[in-house]
Measured scan of single mutants.
Amino acid sequence: PKDEAKKKVKEAIKRGDEETAKRIAKKYNLDWDDAKREADEER
């Protein structure tokens, strides 16, 4: 599900692992900028 994928993307971003985050986002066709902004807001 997309929500689960987005959570994984945000967790990867918070760990500083943007490569993984981008790969997950691409795989699930998520909006990378959107997920990154959300992760930054939660930090």
Rank of each mutant, 00 (worst) to 15 (best):
D17T: 00
E18F: 15
E11M: 07
W32A: 01
E19D: 11
R43K: 13
D3N: 10
E18T: 10
K22W: 06
E4K: 11
D40H: 09
A12F: 12
T20W: 10
W32K: 00
A25C: 10
I13M: 06
K14M: 15
R43M: 15
D3M: 10
G16A: 03
D31R: 02
R23D: 11
W32V: 03
D17W: 07
E18L: 15
R37N: 07
K36W: 12
I13K: 01
K10R: 11
N29E: 09
D40A: 11
E19S: 08
D3V: 09
R15M: 11
D34T: 13
K27P: 00
Y28N: 07
D34E: 15
G16L: 02
P1Y: 14
V9S: 00
K22G: 01
A25L: 02
E19M: 07
V9D: 01
W32F: 15
A21R: 00
A5L: 08
D31V: 06
K26E: 14
D3T: 12
E19W: 07
I24Q: 02
E18D: 08
E38H: 04
E19V: 11
R37T: 06
K7Y: 11
K2A: 12
R23Q: 13
L30G: 00
K7P: 02
K2V: 13
A39C: 04
K14F: 13
K6G: 04
K36N: 06
N29G: 15
R23C: 11
E19K: 11
W32N: 01
R23I: 12
T20A: 12
K26R: 09
D34S: 10
K10D: 04
A21T: 00
A21I: 00
A39V: 14
R43Y: 12
R43L: 15
V9F: 11
E41V: 07
D33V: 08
K2L: 15
E42H: 07
N29L: 06
D3A: 12
A39R: 04
A35W: 05
K22E: 05
A25T: 03
K6F: 15
Y28I: 02
A25D: 01
A12Q: 03
R23L: 14
T20F: 11
I13N: 01
K27G: 03
D31W: 02
K10M: 14
E11Q: 07
E18N: 08
K36H: 05
A12K: 02
A12Y: 13
I24L: 13
A35Q: 05
K27Q: 15
K26G: 07
K26V: 09
A21Q: 00
D34V: 13
K22C: 08
E11V: 03
K14Y: 11
A21P: 01
G16M: 02
A39F: 12
E42P: 07
A25G: 01
A25K: 01
K7A: 12
D34Y: 05
E42W: 06
D17I: 00
K10L: 15
K6S: 06
R43A: 13
E4C: 14
E41S: 12
K10W: 13
R23V: 10
K27E: 15
D17L: 04
R37Y: 06
A5F: 09
D17V: 01
L30H: 01
D33M: 11
E11L: 06
K8W: 15
D33E: 14
A39S: 08
I24N: 01
A35I: 15
D17K: 02
K8M: 15
D40N: 11
A25R: 00
I13L: 14
A12V: 02
K2G: 08
K6R: 13
E4G: 07
V9P: 01
D40K: 07
A25E: 02
E11A: 09
K6H: 07
